[in-house]
Design a protein around this nucleic acid. Structure first.
Lengths: 231, 231
DNA sequence: GTCAAGAAGATTGTCGACAAACGACAAATC
DNA sequence: GATTTGTCGTTTGTCGACAATCTTCTTGAC
């Protein structure tokens, strides 16, 4: 009953809001909609050939995952990522993931270890494959998600999912962190090894270091960019 | 109850969704709507004398603060608090607040200390005042909120606000944790003292202990209740 | 008496329309 | 010329109606 002409229209009636949200997330993360850009409800609705109601709800969803900002009577905007917001985000991730991997190592290592190893293998496979930035970032995040998933605390995973998209956005705004994707994949090895040894402290230290390095690179890139174009 | 039709103040229509949300939060936390209860949009809309649209948005807001659960095609329900969800929540709070108070002590103690002291004084004042459970819980949470607020990481505060209402809901479902409200107020003293000394480790240890004790009491209460009525 | 299929009722999902608010630009005032 | 005021087009805010879906109750077969 709904026409499927235009653009990238998802068209099963089931879970429409979720599909609209996903479409928007993909568009934002693909760089199709730059940070700061306004997201007019009627424009999106027209493009997807549906009414504003589901679009509005989808945008509210994106808001709670931090990709989008809402201002009363002004509408939704793609969130602008600043160096401090990214630094704060990485500090939170350090908290979350060190705690998660501690628990994982202590109570769930045998189940989690194969999954982590498989994901690292996937990272190396992708590294040999090509240089699809989005794919590398997603696979990296999936590794970190696995850690939260197997932490035994559902809320850890929930929190991770809440901040994952924003992290991705930050990484994609920056571009490439590592010149060699194999090097990036390799930075995960010490974490897995520590888990394999059953050494929770070492695992926590390894992931702390891993994320801390990433944070430094990210903040460095931001400073470079700001100097590059001081507007 | 609401829907100010009398008088001439229809200009105050600004932030309607927020006001609806607040009304609902108050109702839930006051126990007016028990956990598991369905929140029918049209019923609420009728009671507040407005249409379903703003009600729906308000409910989505509550969802992101964890007070309410949404199921596709079934609607919104007041979230049922379980012993594991509460335990997970308290573990997350331990993570968050130990880190927050570390940072506070190291970089912001002089500004934060007066605020913390004032809040403890307020706790004691309320303890002498009477036994309004909701007031005690709110004042307690405000103390913990101050810690996140002065942590220097905006995201810590954001996360705290996200889980604060759910914590309150859990506490109110249980009822009273401490027999003597003065005792409850007193448990905050070691935290403030450690901050005053500028000892971040000690402060972190103090709040870790503080929250851990609360967690034990909460889980204990839940187990007692479940035994009481095994359904 | 139990169970399944289906009708009836209630609730959510989506829509198009209108009202209110905002932002930009033109006109008026000093 | 600078500031204020007025107007207009665009976008969000809210609404009532209808379609799709779920729940409950009825009915009938076994």
């Amino acid at each position: 009953m709904l026409a499927e002409h235009r653009g990238f229209v998802p068209l099963n009636r089931d879970g429409l809001v979720d599909r609209v949200a996903k479409t928007l997330v993909d568009a934002i993360l693909a760089g199709g909609i730059p940070p700061g850009e306004r997201l007019a409800e009627s424009t999106i609705a027209k493009q997807m050939d549906l009414s504003r109601a589901p679009v509005r709800e989808a945008l509210r969803l994106l808001e709670s995952s931090g990709l989008v900002e809402y201002r009363t009577n002004r509408g939704f905007f793609v969130k602008v990522v600043s160096v401090t917001s990214m630094a704060d985000l990485y500090d939170l991730r350090i908290l979350l993931e060190t705690a998660a991997i501690r628990r994982l190592t202590e109570i769930n290592a045998d189940v989690a270890l194969p999954a982590l190893r498989a994901q690292v293998a996937e990272l190396h496979r992708l590294a040999g494959e090509g240089d699809d930035l989005m794919a590398h970032v997603s696979a990296d995040m999936q590794f970190h998600r696995l850690i939260c998933e197997h932490s035994g605390n559902q809320r850890f995973l929930q929190l991770f999912d809440q901040i994952a998209n924003e992290t991705k956005l930050g990484l994609l705004v920056i571009g490439r962190l590592y010149d060699d994707p194999h090097e990036m994949a390799g930075t995960h090895d010490p974490i897995v090894e520590a888990v394999a040894l059953g050494d929770a402290n070492r695992a926590a230290g390894a992931i702390d270091y891993h994320i801390r390095v990433a944070k430094e690179m990210v903040t460095q890139h931001f400073h470079d960019q700001q100097e590059g174009k001081p507007e």
